[in-house]
Nucleic acid binder design. Structure first.
Length: 510
RNA sequence: GACUCGGUAGCUCAGCUGGUAGAGCAACGGACUUUUAAUCCGUAGGUCCUGGGUUCGAAUCCCAGCCGAGUCACCA
């Protein structure tokens, strides 16, 4: 028998033994158990004191077998606690069950809270309820699982056995909850717009293509939420947002997953200044929520929540965030005016940036990325962009070459993108028609969407709009340097077991 | 897409210039009523990522491929 089969067989034998005791190895409803974190908080401080009765449920993580005295460490999603089982406290049947317990099994424990002679918070068990048999051999108890591929393909292993992984993902949920609260407090409503688009507009990115069989219609997975939400504003939904998955058919690296989560929100009668205020509120409220969660988990309540670690650096999120004009940053770091084309070309050449055939604003943007972005440790709102880069943005009054747009940068990462929304249908149509020199259609945001122009003709209120990359926000606020650390199941190549010759096609579930 | 690094027992890892595949944990059998990665005695466990090649002989050297990571490119 091969090793994995042999290990599983040992567990199957125990499963049969549990059934022979008249118990269900797959368990059943188990009410009124307490979060382990709470149980720990209620443990008496002194050894020898018998504390309150307590019921918990969780997974067996560690076992110390002293013969007629057995210790287990049981973990739930709030924490871990030691359970002590003394043979003298159990019936013969119960003790048989306790002797059958494997690492990884799920159990319910009733017992008294106490502290062991060595000071460890403990439940002195009086009854064990078997809840679920684990047939899989868990990873090494001290080093855990480390192989990144195993952790990503079997994320459940990562969540169970690596400290901080589950907590980080739960913090992701808290951040998203906080965003919804912030927007609800400001009178926004949530909308769900289509994922399947006829025209993948609203951003510059390559889309995924799919197909509807009955309608025999090719469709794109959305690359942005923008155009549908603006249609809703035309329809009178004055403050609207969507938190949703978007899909971009591009490379994968530590800050890019092909599917990721964005929030976009639109406020009628606002502008990009309104969006800066909302951005700050979203950030500071999310940070407060994380701070409260950290304090509840035993963190220092006096710590400054706005000072957050990012690798070996600190980011100061104390509002208001700095605001800097794109043109000023350009002058400061490139050493010339962005509208001085000859000078910009020279700077570009110095940085080995291709200049031929590019629209002047595209070149400005390339130079900006090369010489400015790394200096944007932030948080800093970069405001007032070259207009040609922004086909969905209203131009600054009296300055048609400047668009009322900002991006929020933190340590060179682009966190948020917002506009005063363009609502002039004739200008919008013209911008859709005008391809930027040097950009192919799929690299440009300027994709003609006649229905969207038709919507604008009905009249969209002047408005501010904002998009935030949720994954990157969670990365920053949880000090995670890879997007894979904040997405439960990041995209991986198909798993090909040794010897198999599977085609390059997705597996269909039976 | 380019380059670099990695893939050995369920897990974490050794394995040198080519010469019978190793440890710890986990598993299995036994001892043990306050352990903390418990300890002690014993047993079993391998497609060395895959496929070729060189060689008397390959985990080790060479070639191709697969999977992952990192850097770069791409991603306004």
């Amino acid at each position: 028998m091969s090793e994995p089969d042999r290990l599983e067989q040992a567990r199957l034998d125990k499963l049969l033994a549990i059934e022979a005791l008249g118990l269900d190895p797959w368990g059943e409803r188990f009410d009124d158990h307490r979060p382990i974190r709470q149980a720990r908080a209620e443990c008496p401080a002194e050894p020898g004191v018998q504390g309150a009765l307590c019921r918990i449920a969780g997974r067996i993580m560690l076992r110390n077998n002293k013969g007629k005295l057995k210790f287990f460490h049981v973990q739930d999603w709030t924490g871990r606690i030691q359970v002590m089982c003394s043979k003298s406290d159990f019936s013969e049947e119960q003790w048989k069950l306790i002797e059958l317990l494997d690492l990884g099994d799920l159990v319910g424990i009733d017992g008294h809270l106490k502290v062991s002679n060595t000071g460890e918070k403990t439940i002195g068990a009086t009854h064990v309820t078997f809840l679920t048999k684990s047939l899989a051999q868990p990873p090494e108890k001290f080093h855990g699982a480390k192989d990144v591929e195993l952790l990503l393909r079997q994320r459940y292993i990562d969540l169970i056995y690596n400290d901080g992984v589950l907590a980080r993902m739960l913090n992701r949920g808290k951040i998203i909850d906080s965003i919804r609260q912030t927007l609800r407090a400001r009178g926004f409503v949530e909308a769900e717009t289509p994922v399947l688009h006829s025209i993948a507009g609203g951003a510059a990115a390559r889309p995924f293509i799919t197909h509807h069989n009955a309608l025999d219609m090719s469709l794109f997975l959305r690359i942005a939420l923008e155009l549908h939400l603006k249609r809703l504003m035309v329809g009178g939904v004055e403050r609207v947002y969507e938190i949703g998955r978007v899909f971009r058919n591009e490379g994968v690296d530590s800050t890019h997953n092909p599917e990721f989560t964005m929030i976009e929100l639109y406020q009628a009668y606002g502008d990009y200044e309104t969006m800066m205020d909302i951005t700050e509120a979203i950030f500071t409220n999310a940070i407060q929520a994380l701070h409260e969660a950290a304090v509840a988990a035993g963190g220092d309540p006096a710590a400054n929540p706005y000072l957050r670690p990012w690798g070996d650096k600190l980011v100061d999120y104390t509002p208001p965030f700095q605001r800097a004009r794109y043109g000023d940053l350009f002058r400061q770091h490139a050493g010339c005016e962005m509208h001085d084309h000859a000078a910009v070309v020279e700077v570009a050449r110095k940085h080995h940036i291709e200049t031929k055939g590019k629209h002047p604003d595209v070149l400005i943007n390339d130079v900006f990325e090369a010489v400015v972005e790394d200096h944007l440790t932030g948080p800093v709102f970069v405001i007032d962009y070259p207009a040609a880069m922004c086909p969905l943005t209203k131009r600054k009054k009296g300055h048609p070459e400047i668009a009322e747009r900002f991006e929020l940068f933190i340590h060179g990462m682009e966190l948020a993108n917002a506009y005063t929304e363009l609502n002039d249908p004739r200008l919008q149509e013209e911008l859709f028609r005008t391809q930027l020199a040097g950009l192919s259609e799929e690299d440009s945001m300027a994709k003609m969407d006649t229905d969207f122009v038709r919507a604008l003709k009905v009249g969209m209120p002047p408005a501010g709009g904002l998009g935030i990359g949720i994954d990157r926000l969670v990365m920053l606020l949880t000090n995670s340097h890879s997007i894979r650390d904040v997405i439960y199941f990041p995209l991986l190549r198909h798993e090909r077991p040794a010897g198999s010759r599977t085609e390059d096609a997705p597996e269909e579930a039976g």
